[in-house]
């Protein structure tokens, strides 16, 4: 494939990755920003989202679009609820101590993973996309000094992948409105800025925490429902989204919402584009080192303000 169309294809694929990553990572960023804890089980909420989406669509039967629409609403709520329960039974009791939270969430990670293995099994199972048309894409070329369009071999995307990008953007705008315009967002931001002060002003901090934890998990689950018609639900699938979300949250400046979105775009797109230039595994090594070095030389993240 020529360079131009190749780059466009890689960019489009990168955009899908970025969209899903932005959703997952903003959930993690929300939790980290408001509660100042690292949730290692975040990837498992993602995995649960995918697995539950399979359950729901499979149980309902009927048309693919209907089952998927139901899953899109029901699954994030279920996962969010589970996260709230986790928060109230475990995290609250250890007082959100940063180190103990890490250990506890590692434990929770294993629990979710194993319960899924025991009930759902070890298979990777597909969910039928509600719609999926292959769209061949045109590219520009100059023939005898005139611009003309042609359809390069292999340059295409599916309508569903485009919809994923659109849906992710919509949800992120919604989240941003929630955080900046609603009373709930105000409570969250107040808690984020000064927990003790918020408590003194009568904000039910514990309830805000539980809610934030649930919302963060629901974001991961929603991302998973969107991706599961492209990938498959598997009980070990939470690992990569967790790693990538971590990277995104840190590069984005630890809890900064716009920073997280920008970082997700950067990481998602570069994942696609770097693969154009290097052999795949070498590309992964370079991308990984690049992220590490960015953090080493800009520890506050690319988009975070240096807080002193």
């Amino acid at each position: 494939m020529d360079f131009g169309p190749y780059l466009m294809l890689a960019t489009l694929e990168g955009a899908v990755t970025a969209a899903v990553l932005a959703l997952t990572a903003s959930g993690l960023a929300l939790v980290f920003g408001v509660m100042r804890v690292v949730n290692v089980a975040h990837g498992e909420f993602f995995m649960l989202g995918a697995v539950l989406a399979w359950w729901v669509t499979n149980m309902l039967g009927g048309s693919a679009a209907f089952g998927f629409a139901v899953a899109l609403i029901v699954v994030p709520v279920l996962v969010g609820f589970l996260a709230v329960v986790t928060d109230m039974t475990v995290l609250k009791r250890i007082n959100y101590d940063p180190e103990r939270t890490i250990v506890a969430t590692i434990g929770i990670l294993y629990i979710f993973q194993q319960v899924t293995l025991m009930t759902y099994g070890p298979d990777a199972r597909p969910v039928v996309p509600p719609f999926n048309t292959r769209l061949a894409l045109p590219w520009i070329e100059f023939v005898d000094g005139e611009i003309s369009l042609y359809w390069p071999w292999g340059l295409s995307i599916t309508s569903y992948k485009l919809a994923v990008i659109g849906a992710a953007a919509l949800v992120l705008v919604g989240l941003w409105v929630l955080m900046t315009r609603s009373k709930l967002g105000l409570l969250m931001r107040a808690t984020e800025q000064d927990r003790d002060m918020a408590l003194a002003f009568g904000i039910p901090v514990e309830r805000v925490y539980a809610l934030v934890f649930g919302l963060g998990a629901a974001m991961a689950a929603l991302a998973a429902v969107l991706i599961v018609p492209i990938q498959q639900a598997h009980y070990l699938m939470g690992h990569d989204p967790l790693l990538l979300s971590f990277i995104v949250v840190i590069i984005g400046g630890l809890g900064s919402f716009p920073g997280t979105i920008l970082a997700a775009l950067l990481i998602g797109l570069s994942d696609g584009v770097i693969s154009v230039f290097f052999s795949p595994t070498l590309a992964k090594i370079l991308a990984t080192l690049l992220v590490a070095l960015v953090l080493v030389f800009r520890p506050q993240g690319l988009f975070g303000a240096r807080d002193t």
Binding site: T281, I285, L295
Partner: peptide, 27 residues
């Protein structure tokens, strides 16, 4: 390199270097 960072960033930087090392073994 990693000591230029602290806290969560230190965790992630060490994680990333280890991941790069793992991929290098495969490469």
């Amino acid at each position: 390199l990693a000591l230029r960072t602290e806290g969560v960033a230190f965790m992630i930087v060490t994680l990333m270097f280890a991941q790069a090392g793992y991929l290098t073994i495969l490469y």
